[in-house]
């Protein structure tokens, strides 16, 4: 599915080569920690469960949560919320104490070249221990790979795969995530 480079002039091929070498230089780049704005709390859990229609009592009843390893009086968070705790939120900023660099440092390079659109395509999460009310989650990420140039249904772009390890306030690994996005130029604007 890779776009045939024969569509391009020699200069464009050379430019693409330099760009792709630059992309590959980000493989292995580490970033973090990225902290959470809030400790794991019932209000955010309830908002999530309400929107998702998730009525699991482990997420609101401490008597159930204790059977899943939660401290007395605490509920457990939906494991699939793991990534939500360290999200930047409305202002697109990580809390103070976080790494100040872009969490996926290759993204600005794509933006400069006009690959402005982004869509997530894969998310693989492993949960190693319960994330409970009161926990303070942080994440550290590594760029695992950047694909060759692909032509997809959405447009022309590159898949970027990032690995993130999430830890709690005791520095115990609570889970990890392999996250893949497509950074692309939509077909309507692809050059």
């Amino acid at each position: 599915m890779t776009r045939q480079n024969t569509d391009l002039t020699d200069d464009e091929i050379e430019e693409l080569k330099v760009f792709e070498e630059q992309l590959q230089s980000f493989v292995g780049a580490e970033a973090g920690p990225f902290l959470s704005w809030d400790r794991v709390n019932r209000a955010m859990i309830r908002h999530w469960c309400e929107a998702m229609g998730d009525a699991n009592p482990a997420y609101y009843d401490a008597d159930v949560a204790v059977q899943l390893g939660a401290p007395a009086g605490a509920v457990v968070a939906p494991p699939t919320m793991m990534q939500a705790w360290t999200m930047t939120g409305f202002a697109c900023q990580h809390p103070p104490g976080s790494d100040t660099r872009e969490s996926m440092p290759v993204l600005p390079v794509f933006d400069q070249q006009g690959y402005l659109a982004v869509v997530a395509t894969n998310c693989e999460q492993e949960y190693l221990q319960a994330i409970c009310e009161g926990d303070d989650v942080n994440g550290r990420s590594t760029i695992e790979s950047v694909s060759s140039r692909k032509t997809t249904g959405l447009g022309v772009g590159y898949f970027v795969t990032q690995l993130t390890e999430f830890r709690n306030q005791r520095d115990e690994v609570v889970g990890n995530m392999r996250f893949r996005i497509l950074k692309y130029k939509p077909h309507s604007t692809a050059s």
Partner: peptide, 28 residues
């Protein structure tokens, strides 16, 4: 993140509250 949440919810709706998710790997 929401799709991930729905997949998790779908499975624990079925298992009951003491089902412990160990892995959710999705492709969109």
């Amino acid at each position: 993140l929401t799709t991930n949440g729905f997949v998790g919810r779908y499975v624990t709706d079925w298992t009951g509250a003491l089902g412990v998710l160990k892995k959710v790997a999705i492709k969109l």
